[in-house]
Structures are given as structure tokens and as C-alpha cells.
Design a protein around this nucleic acid. Structure first.
Lengths: 228, 228
DNA sequence: CTTGACATCGAACATGAGTTCGGTTTATAA
DNA sequence: TTATAAACCGAACTCATGTTCGATGTCAAG
């Protein structure tokens, strides 16, 4: 049975399972597959998974969460050399999903997150820089403007973020302050009912905001600056 | 953390996960682990799994079925291999040769440069960040102190430099100012017989130094900041 | 003996995630 | 066009599976 006899969707599914497996060490759920390949109904994913089983590309364990196993068919779509080796060397490719500025909310990755991004919009990040993080939750933003200088972050810098809505004290986070209509990068300290937002630059003073007026968009894992 | 510091049960669990993974292609559930290792309660398995996470043998995805990932404890490849693969990919390994502070001259890599560095002291840099540079001329420094905040560079940041003694206008360079006994990171502009050193932070004012009182140590290619 | 940290147990709970099914859309052929 | 099958949808259903918590047992330090 040939890889080419599969529908586009089935190829995407197979491809996604492979990539997910490499990233996470365990297979995706039906719903995760659906999101990645833009299938609305779990039953359709199920349907196509069974098709893939029929055609010998997959095995399933019934009634088992994530009970998928790829069959060692031929290398059906040789990954690009660079990508394959990059995986071996712990190089992450993080999607650059937009720009971050003080005057606008933080753009977050869309629902199709984590899979179909142009290689043009991928940022290379050594795993050593970000630790054992789930790469699916990572995204990158390009800073525009000089409004984040108090975080020692300048125009053109790349911020690597992990998507999360909560923060621990001391975390550097990207927050949206609805009452100010402002995005900022600060260190986060919950103090009673208010939050102290401390600039990374030790010479700057903190600001204080009511906890319910602080919307954490993500935790900053790294900042990259390239000079021309 | 040593494998030997684990309890018998924890070793059994680890072994079982590994074997289950090999047999099935996906990780076991808590209950499957419990059966295999003769643990009556799921909470005990859960407890021990968390212990394994604490000790760095495992990663867990919260609220995810079979969300286990083994950490490969003994996986430091021999250096030759690492370098060889890095060569083929777009990942540079740059030696971290010392610290940079305002109060001391820039440490430069010695003559044995490039071959005899402990892998602990190598910084991974994606080639995309630094362009087509001669890797043998690259080195990295860790910033200590807050004296370079006007360059938007803070304590703990990593600066990637290319060794060179001349600069073109607009280059960000590490310079030694003998008459001040000071190291600094600035943008370089030669203006007649003097040099304008412009902080990266646009809110700061430049300083002016006679050209013969500016000793360029290297050009800054990139700055890396890791949080947490 | 008492205390407290650590490991265990059992049971209840909440939700993650596979399965099923009636109905609708799309493609293909007659 | 009509007919038929394959592909898709949405929702409900049910079980699989992670999480939590109070109670119990063990052991070494004080």
C-alpha cells in the first residue's frame, strides 16, 4: 500500500502524529489531531485513523487513550535533513506569531497552533536556553518600539514565551493591563491582593496593579537580540 | 542525581515504563504501572512518579493520559559527535571564555582557541542568529553587574562576539577605554578624529572619545538572555 | 514515648478521551 | 439529473485515567 494513495488529510494526520510523538514522547489524542489538522469532529479523526489502520500505516489499541503506534513503513516523506538533524541536536523551532508592543495586546498563537507554520516564521532556539519545556507551548514575538526598555528589551528583539495564564513570583511575564490598555514585560510578584510588577532594569521602580487587573499572557523564557 | 538513590520501587517503575514504551509505542497509565509493580493504590504510583520527576528521571504532562516522558540521564554524546553534528546543522557552539564587566578589560580567547573547551562552557547559538560568520573567531562572555544597562544588557546576559579590532560605523562593539579604565558595549561611529559611542538605549546620551583612546575588542553579534 | 517526615492505602472525584450514531455534504458514475 | 458510497459533522455517551484527600503504617530523631 502506497503513501501516495492516502488523502491529503490522512497524510497530514500521519505527519502530525509523527511530529507530535517526537516532540512529546507520547502520541496525540483524537482531539489534538483534530485541532492540528483542522477537523471539527472527533468522529472524523477516528474515521481516518481507522482508514490508516486498514492501509497499514498505523496500529490502534482500542479504548486506550493515545493508543496509537506508527508502523515502520518506508520513510514516507523524508523530513528535510536540517529538521531531522536539528531534532537530534536539541534545536527547537519556535513559531514567530507576531509582534509585541506596549500599545496592543499580546498576539497569541491561533488554534492551529504548533504545527503548520512557514519555515520563514520559525525562530531557532537551542534547547539549552529554555530547558525541558514543552515545545508546543512555546512561541516567539518580535518587539516593536522602545516601550519595553525598562525590561531591558529593545526594538527588534525576539522574546521567547511559554503560553501560560498563571505566574509564580519572580517569573518574568508578558501581561496585559486592561485598565491601562497596555502590554508590558515585568517580573511578577503577587503581594496580597495586588501585584507588583518589577522592571528587569534594577534602576526602575515597580508598578502596582490590582490582581484582577493583571492578565498574564505568557512567561518569558528567553530574549534574543541580533545585531545587524 | 544518581540512579542508585532511587528506591527499589522507583527503579521498577522506571524500568517498566521503559519496557512498556518499547513494547507499545506509548507510555503506560498510572494503573498499568501499579499492576506491573504491585502497587495497590493509584495515588502511590502518582506519588512515586512525582518523586521521579523531582529527581530528573521523568517529565509529566499534567492532566494528560499517559503523559510521561523519560529523561535520558546518560545521554551526553561524546564531544566529537556533538561537534560533528553541529557542523552539519545550523547550530554553532561558541566558547564561553569569561565574564565582562565595566570595571575590567574584555577577556579574549587564548591561542588554543576553539578546540579545548569543556562542553560545559560552550554556548549553543543558531547560525541564523549570527549570519555567515567565521566560527573560529566567535566567543561568548557572560555579563556581570548592571553597568551595561545603557546597552540594554543586564546581569547574566550572554554576549556573542566576533573577535576584531576594527569596527564599521553602526557596529555594536565591545571597547576598552584605557583613559577611563573601562569596558563598555556601544554603537561605534567614527566622526573625524573622535569616536561617538552611542548606547543602544535611545534614551541615553552618547559619549565622545578620541579615536586613539578607543580599543575595539570585538563586535557584538548577538545577545542571549535566559530567564529563570 | 512523642514527634514528624516519608511511604502507603482506599475511595471518591473530575475530566480526559475513545466510541457510537443519526444526519448532512461531497464526489463519482450512470 | 439521480443514485450510491465515501467523507464529514455534531452531539451524546461511556469508560479510561489523572487528581485529591483523609487515614494508616513505618522508622528514625529527640
Amino acid at each position: 500500500m502506497e503513501y501516495n494513495k492516502l488523502s491529503t488529510r490522512q497524510k497530514k494526520i500521519l505527519d502530525f502524529i509523527e511530529s507530535f510523538l517526537r516532540d512529546n514522547g507520547f502520541p496525540p489524542t483524537i482531539r489534538e489531531i483534530g485541532e492540528a489538522v483542522n477537523i471539527a469532529s472527533t468522529s472524523v479523526v477516528n474515521y481516518n485513523l481507522n482508514k490508516l489502520v486498514e492501509r497499514g500505516f498505523l496500529e490502534r489499541a482500542p479504548e486506550v487513550s493515545r493508543g496509537l503506534r506508527l508502523i515502520n513503513q518506508e520513510d514516507h516523506q523524508p523530513k528535510e535533513m536540517g529538521v531531522a538533524i536539528a531534532d537530534m541536536t536539541h534545536l527547537f523551532q519556535v513559531p514567530l506569531v507576531g509582534k509585541i508592543a506596549a500599545s496592543a495586546p499580546v498576539p497569541l498563537p491561533g488554534e492551529d497552533f504548533g504545527y503548520y507554520y512557514d519555515s520563514d516564521d520559525m525562530i531557532d532556539v537551542p534547547q539549552a536556553m529554555i530547558g525541558p519545556s514543552h515545545r508546543d507551548e512555546l512561541f516567539a514575538l518580535r518587539v516593536t518600539g522602545d516601550s519595553m526598555i525598562d525590561a531591558m528589551v529593545g526594538d527588534g528583539d525576539i522574546v521567547i514565551l511559554k503560553r501560560q495564564n498563571v505566574a509564580k513570583n519572580g517569573d518574568m511575564v508578558a501581561v496585559w493591563l486592561p485598565e491601562r490598555g497596555e502590554t508590558t514585560l515585568k517580573k511578577y510578584y503577587l503581594e496580597g491582593k495586588r501585584v507588583r510588577l518589577q522592571p528587569a532594569n534594577p534602576m526602575m521602580d515597580p508598578i502596582y496593579v490590582n490582581a484582577d487587573q493583571v492578565s498574564v499572557q505568557g512567561r518569558v523564557l528567553a530574549i534574543l537580540r541580533t545585531l545587524h
